[in-house]
Structure formats: C-alpha cells, structure tokens
Design a protein around this nucleic acid. Structure first.
Length: 304
DNA sequence: CTCCAGGTCCATA
DNA sequence: TATGGACATGGA
C-alpha cells in the first residue's frame, strides 16, 4: 500500500526545467496582485488552478523546486494525453517557451525599459491560454477601474458555479459560452454588468458556441488578420484585439497602445505630470518591435 | 462633488 | 473622417 501511494505520487506530477531568464517568484508576485481573483489561488509560494478539458477537471498545483516547476495534479491521475494538455497550459500560462534574450538586449538600450528589466528580470508575460477568458476579461475591464472589474468577473464566475471542492476550498473554472448565454440579461444587470458589457459578452459567447471564433483559427492568421477578424465582432475594438493577441495568442508584437494603464506607467517612468499622447508613445516605442507586448507587460507590472 | 478607470459604439456634421 | 456623448460603478 505504501509503495503504491508513493508510486502514485510520482506518477501524479511532472517537472518542467526553467528556461533561461525565468523567475517563478516574480511571476507569482504579478499573479498575486489582486485579492478578488477567482480563477486561481496562491498559497505558500504555490499556485493552484482548476483546469478543464473536454471531459475532465484537473486541480493542479505549481511550485518551484530546484530550478524546475513541479506540476502536480491533486484530484485525479491524468493519463499521458491529459498531461500533455496540462503541461501545455502551464507553458502558455507562464510563457515558458519564449527566449527573452533579444527582448532584454533591446530593452537594455531603451530609456523607459532598461530600469524595468532590471527590476523585473525573469518575469514572464502571464498569459490567459483560454480564448474566452482573455476576451471576456478584456470586455469586463473596458473603461472601469480594475478592482470593480475583478468583482464583476467574480460574480459571473460564481453565477456559473463550475467548481471543485478540495480540502475545504472551492476552485472554479470559467463559465462556458453556453452558460453565459443562459444567464438572463436581468440577472447580469443584478450582478451590475452594464447593458453594453452584457451584449458584448453574449455576442462573443455566441461566436465561440457556433465555432465561428476559435483560438486555433486565430493562431493560423497574421497579426493584421487577427485584428481584422476580432474587431469585426461588436464589443471588440483595437485595444481588446491587441490585449487578446498579447495575453492569449502569444503575439509579442501586439501593442494595446490605447491602454490607460500603459499611458500612466509611461508617465511615471518618464517623470512627467501628463500622460503621453498616442503620437508620443509611438515615437518612444519605435524601437520596441517586435517586443511591444513584453514592454507593455513590464510597464503594467510597474504599476502594481 | 468631480474626475477618471487596462474602451467601444453610435449619432451627428 | 472626425468628434462628442452614453455607458455603470466605485475609488481617489
């Protein structure tokens, strides 16, 4: 019995070697920035997240051990296909497969970025591998303060109530498109979503449901084509399209240049009293290509 | 009280 | 093509 348990323990975890320029603690610090986050949790330097594929729920724990990420599944014994799914998710979430040498080289010569890469060296662009999560979070976050946005997201997640209980704690997955369509507009209003956000969320949910919008399709397109495809959808403008490209599709040249957080962070870095104009940002960022997304992310990090 | 939040759409000229 | 208002709520 004892042997079997330890064998299971080994079987239920996998390890991922740290890539060059990776600091798990820096990623954790970014992840831990908001207390109302409901799609993962952090405890004792370990991250917990409930993942769902077509058939299964996997509660995973991620921790750092000897320059490796140890990924454990706490609630079940994944088979090899399941592990491929889980590890792919983790690799995307922490953007592990992106060599950062050229970003750091470029940033070291940049007035705005060089102090940031010094402070946050090893921080990866924390992504949202699920397309619906990235788009819905962008829509929810449009034009409202972040703490209110987190509260809205949490109410929506709790409304769908896709949870797994483990050791007295509840872990949630994102509402599905179908569940989102099933929530009445009146109920969404009670949750304090604006009529616009309700409409936009449901339009996106419908596209995902029909299959006219999906991640695999977007990944096959050029960045310009992705923007074109996404902005055809009502509720998705240039900011949201670029946000999704950077946070979900892993396009490092995505640049949500309209972002107010970006503007504020640049103002601080420049020591100015006024936020830079779009034209000024374009000038300041002209050497950032193709790393605009990373530059933006490091600037966001500076606001925490 | 006022202003502004990790924007976008729509009406108007 | 460009600009202004509406949207919802809450924090500073």
């Amino acid at each position: 019995m004892k042997n079997q348990l330890s064998w299971q323990g080994i079987r239920n975890q996998r390890r991922i070697d740290f890539p060059l320029h990776f600091r798990f603690d820096k990623c954790l610090h970014f992840l831990g920035r908001n207390l109302d986050e409901c799609l993962f949790s952090i405890k004792n330097e370990k991250v917990y997240k409930l993942l769902k594929d077509a058939n299964n729920l996997f509660l995973i724990e991620i921790k750092e051990v000897n320059e490796q990420l140890t990924v454990s599944c706490l609630n079940s014994q994944p088979n090899e296909d399941d592990w491929n799914f889980i590890l792919k998710y983790v690799e995307e979430w922490f953007d592990l497969n992106r060599p950062l040498d050229s970003f750091y080289h470029l940033a070291s010569k940049d007035q705005i970025l060089s102090p940031l890469i010094h402070h946050y060296h090893g921080l990866r662009l924390i992504r949202m591998p699920e397309l619906f999560e990235a788009i819905s979070w962008a829509i929810i976050g449009q034009q409202i303060n972040l703490s209110f946005a987190y509260r809205l997201k949490k109410r929506w997640v709790l409304e769908a109530n896709n949870h797994l209980a483990y050791e007295g704690q509840l872990f949630y997955t994102l509402p599905t498109p179908q569940q989102t369509l099933n929530i009445s507009d009146e109920r969404f209003r009670e949750l304090q979503f604006s009529r616009q956000k309700i409409k936009y969320l449901k339009i996106v949910a419908e596209h995902l449901q029909k299959g006219s919008l999906n991640k695999v399709k977007l990944l096959a397109l050029s960045p310009d084509e992705v923007i074109h495809e996404l902005t055809k959808i009502k509720g998705i403008g240039p900011w949201t399209a670029n946000y999704v490209m950077m946070k979900c599709l892993g396009i490092s040249s995505a640049f949500p240049i309209q972002d107010v957080g970006l503007h504020n962070a640049m103002k601080v870095q420049l020591g100015k009293k006024e936020k830079p104009t779009i034209a000024e940002i374009k000038e300041l960022a002209k050497n950032w290509h193709p790393w605009e997304a990373y530059a933006t992310f490091y600037l966001w990090r500076s606001l925490i």
